[in-house]
Structure formats: C-alpha cells, structure tokens
Nucleic acid binder design. Structure first.
Lengths: 190, 190
DNA sequence: CGAGCCTGTTAGCGGGCGTTAACCGGTGGT
DNA sequence: ACCACCGGTTAACGCCCGCTAACAGGCTCG
C-alpha cells in the first residue's frame, strides 16, 4: 500500500514505525489494520506481534517519541539561549524544521492522541504541556505584561501555523516562509 | 454521553448532526459507534436510520456543510470588498469567527476528510480548493510579485493559526489575539 | 550435530459495529 | 373509524479486525 523499499537502512522495528506513521497519517489509526501494516512492510498480518505487543503500542511509541523529541529540542534551546527574543527565534526554527521534515508525524500527533491508551496519553500530554510551557515562558519574558492565557494561545497558534506543513509544499522556501510568518505573528504581541 | 438537552430548538436531524460533530471531534469518526450517537440524543441505535441513510452520510453532511459555508462566506467578502488588504482583513475576521464559534467542526474537518466516501470527498476538496483560491487571489493582489505557491502556503499557514481555536480558550480575547497574529503574519509577506 | 531462539507462516476465536428486518404505538387526514 | 405514515423499538446477520495458537525454517552457539 505504501512504498515498500522506502526506508534505506533500518531494522524491522524502525521500518514498521516509519510505515505506520505514513499509514496512520493517511488513513487514521482506526483506518489502518494490522494486516495493512504488515503488507506495507512485506510481511503479513500477525508477524507484527514479533516486534510490538499490539497495535496501540505502535501509536504509543510514535507519539511518545514525538513529544519527547520536541521537548528535548525545546529544553536544549532554552538552556543555551538567554535572550528571550533570540530563544523564540530558535524555537521557531527548531519546530519549523521538525514540522517540515516529518509532516506525517505532525498529522498523527494531534489526530490520534485520543486513541492512545490512557496512561500513555497522560504521558504525552504531560510532555506536550512542558514543551508549551517553554514557549509560554519565553513569550512572557519577551513581552512583559503578556498574560499567561494569551501566551498559551499564541504558542498554540504558532504551532498551528508551523504545523501546516502537511498542506504546504515540501520546498525549503515554504518552510522559510512559515518561519517568517511565525516570527512576524509573535512580534505582533507587542 | 454528551449533554442531552444541549441544542435548544432543533429538529431531530439537526440535533443528531450537532451531537455527531461533538462526538466525532472528541473520538474521531471510527471511534464513535452508531449506538453512541443514538444514545447521545436519547434514542437508541438503529433509529438513526430514520433520519440518515448511514453513518458516512452524517460525516458527509457535516463536511460538505462546512466547506460550503466557508466558501460562501469567502465569496461574499470577495464580492463586496475591492481593496485586497481590506479583503484579507475581512477574510481573517470571517474565518477566525467561524473557527472560534465551531471548534469541533474545525477538528472534524481536517481529521476525518479521509473517511468520506470518495465522491463527497471530491466535492469537499473542490469547495476547499475554491475557498483557498479566494485567499490566494487576495494575497497576490495585496503583495504583487508573490508566487502562487507562496500564497498558497501562506493561506494554509493562516488557516492553521486561526484553526488552533480547539487548543485555545473560548474567550473573545483569544480570538482577537489570533486575528492580530494572523494579520501580522500576512503583512510580513512584504 | 543438536538445542534454541528469532522471525516468519496460516488457521481460528471472539467481539464490536454497521446495517437490515420485523414489529409497534401515536397522530393526522379522509 | 380506518389507514398510513412517522419515528421509534429489539433481534439478528455478517463482516472485519485485533489477537492468540500452533507450527516451521534458518541461524548461532555450545
């Protein structure tokens, strides 16, 4: 169903994860069967259980991985950058870069959160919340007097803007454009 | 499962559609059963077939309705407003207003498009494309020399920003903030 | 050589869900 | 008074899907 020889060098596990990301992004978690996933990597059906305990575990690993990656990147930037405006620019670039390189993950991320088993969902939400707080903090330092709610709204809005990559071309110019728009919108917080 | 006496004055049909929007937004199309939908309006299970030919028909009506509404609103503004900057402001306000009033529809719109039966999906996509073209046209007139692809990317980015309402508070200030950010990001197209 | 794990296979079970069938009370028009 | 339709009900069918069971081939290591 998807290109079989897509991922160049990867163990079965990673290959399955990659193909799952694509299929989940295209058809949604419930729109993809175990058999579909197997077929997409050239094995068939229940062989997946040799690598993952179940279908939900696939989704968990994808979503936890994404939110951990974002949080780690955000924390790294926050640690190494003092000036809040500079930090915001770094955050925008980091997030835009991720969204540009992995549009399928972006799609799965906020489409299928609800399909996670409850404990993993809590984990992901906690990671996401922490990531958002990095942005909120930077925004409030960059724009003194900005209320928390406003900062949170602005952060989510910026994510929405940058996460529009699935609807945009994959060209570097598109990514650059979105970065510029994001920075401009953040500057407008006065 | 949802508040039963929610919609004040409405025929069964509209009540079902409203509740379907909420449930689809919360759990995804495949995550909601016919029985769930029935229960949420106080009837049980197959009684829905007295009002709709099937589950997919519900989704179709929702999504076609949304895209028709957006297109109609966009066309109305485009018809009555000459100046492209003024038009963009009107479009931003219109879109922001819709996203702010119907966050569930926003969610369903781009989450469950793939679950539409093919003909309706084509219909919705055509309507969406036409709506986007209104924005693209206004953007190109407002920013001479802006390439089409860039305009399209900018339009989708702005949608992403404005459509972040499901993650934002429902306060009017949040909506106003998103509008301001959108306008600022559009101005940055130089 | 042989034991055992690793990674596949196919067959089958069980549950859930969309949909259809068959039935029924109330209401409004002739 | 009756008939027909409208909007419900419950029962049942059939499919699809996640998952388990049972089995098999090849690789490695003692």
């Amino acid at each position: 169903m998807a290109t079989p020889a897509a991922t160049p060098a990867s163990s079965r596990r990673e290959q399955i994860l990659a193909v799952a990301a694509q299929l989940f992004a295209r058809h949604g978690f419930h729109g993809v069967s175990i058999a579909d996933l197997g077929a997409a990597v050239g094995i068939s059906g229940p062989a997946l259980y040799r690598h993952f305990p179940g279908k939900e575990a696939l989704l968990s690993e994808l979503l936890v991985g994404i939110s951990e990656h974002l949080l780690a990147g955000g924390q790294a930037r926050a640690a190494r950058t003092e000036d809040p405006h500079e930090l915001l620019a770094a955050l925008v670039e980091f997030h835009a870069d991720f969204a540009h390189r992995e549009p399928e993950l972006i799609v799965v991320q906020d489409r299928d959160l609800a399909n996670l088993p409850a404990p993993d969902r809590r984990t992901v939400r906690r990671l996401q919340r922490t990531y958002v707080e990095i942005w909120v903090d930077a925004l409030q330092r960059a724009h003194p007097g900005l209320p928390v709610d406003a900062a949170r709204t602005a952060a989510h809005g910026t994510f929405g803007l940058l996460n529009s990559t699935p609807h945009a071309g994959r060209s570097p110019e598109a990514a650059a454009l979105l970065r510029r728009m994001a920075l401009a919108s953040l500057r407008s917080l006065s």
